[in-house]
């Protein structure tokens, strides 16, 4: 199972690393896509067992989070009528907290309930209870579930001591952990969703979550606020640094950067450029790339928003064209 560079499919690509000595790749189907673990480790068997444990975790999460499972936490939430409540597990609670928060931050541009009334779900984080103040809310965690899964996979691999790893779900939600010995970062690409061989940007990442949203030819994304197709954007990418171990840990709720990045990419397909620039300017570490729609969309059209801009910077992190 030596790793080969997979075909790029838009979203995020991984370029061939320079040193391939101890790099292994493992794949698993879940959540209607393929999850992969790239692990740089001297013991292939051990790396395979760690990857297997990570995949088993994804399967468990799918059982809790999928709206297609009749007995998942999310299905039970979706069946609540006004005044009813459902006890959920940690994964569903954390995803709903993140989803609700992103809904507020993006003024509903990211909405896991797609206009069916997410604010009608009250989240009691102390008792792991979701209470509906109105019926008919239909949650679909498709927009952050994969990100949440890769966040947890990354945590598990670290626990196993497989720290030099890269994890992705369907190439649209990814986490880069520590890098192979001879690399400064995991080599990644951002490419044209309509023509993946057209690479716009090459990145080198470590300890970072990176997510992508995009439209292929004939696809469209619905604006949950107006329920009309969105025009003007071909793709959005968001990167967030992983929190240090001091910030996460098992006493508190999980800080899930890939889940947050997942939700933001969806929102950034809709939000105005000024709004995106403002969000990035106010969040050190948050980085975004937007590909506007246009006949000749090319690397020069890629807007780059960088939260690392220092306060007082003239353009305040406003979009700049990629170099």
């Amino acid at each position: 199972m030596r790793a080969d560079a997979p075909d790029l499919d838009g979203g995020i690509g991984i370029a061939e690393p320079r040193e391939r000595g101890d790099l292994w790749r493992f794949s698993h189907e879940a959540m209607h896509t393929v999850f992969e673990v790239y692990a740089s480790h001297p013991d292939e068997r051990y790396a395979a067992q760690a990857a297997q444990a990570a995949f088993a975790l994804v399967d468990r999460l799918e059982g809790d989070l999928s709206r297609f499972r009749s007995n998942s936490d999310i299905t039970r939430v979706n069946q609540l009528t006004a005044g009813e409540s459902a006890r959920v597990g940690e994964a569903a609670l954390e995803c709903l907290l993140i989803a609700r928060h992103l809904y507020d931050v993006t003024d509903g541009a990211f909405d896991v309930a797609i206009g069916t009334g997410l604010p009608s779900l009250e989240i009691d984080a102390d008792d792991f209870l979701i209470r509906a103040t109105a019926g008919g809310v239909r949650v679909d965690l498709g927009g952050i579930g994969k990100g949440y899964a890769v966040d947890l996979m990354a945590e598990l691999l670290e626990e196993w001591g497989v720290e030099r790893a890269f994890v992705h779900g369907g190439f649209s939600s990814a986490v880069a952990l520590e890098t192979p010995a001879a690399c400064d970062g995991w080599p990644l690409t951002l490419s044209d969703p309509r023509e993946p061989s057209r690479v716009f940007s090459r990145l080198s990442m470590r300890q970072t979550a990176l997510s992508a949203s995009g439209v292929r030819k004939g696809d469209h994304i619905l604006d949950p606020r107006t329920r009309t197709p969105v025009r003007g954007r071909l793709a959005a990418w968001v990167a967030l640094p992983r929190p240090g171990t001091a910030a996460s840990g098992h006493e508190g709720f999980r800080l899930a950067p890939a889940a947050v990045a997942d939700g933001l990419t969806t929102a950034f397909m809709l939000l105005g450029v000024d709004r995106i620039a403002a969000l990035c300017a106010r969040s050190p570490g948050l980085e975004a790339w937007i590909l506007p729609d246009g006949v000749s969309a090319c690397a020069a059209d890629l807007l780059h928003f960088n939260g690392r801009a220092t306060p007082g910077d003239d353009d305040g992190g406003r979009g700049r064209q990629a170099k």
Binding site: L97, I98, R100, H101, L102, D104, V105, A125, D126, L240, P241, P243, G244, A247, G249, E251, G252, F253, L255, P257, V260, L279, R282, S283, P284, G285, L286, G307
Partner: peptide, 23 residues
């Protein structure tokens, strides 16, 4: 302290995620 009751405070200790204080 950063505990299960305090997701928001936990997040605010991380610069990038701090923006997204939960509701």
């Amino acid at each position: 302290k950063l505990g299960r009751r305090d997701l928001l405070m936990g997040l605010s200790t991380v610069p990038a995620l701090g923006l997204f204080g939960y509701a």
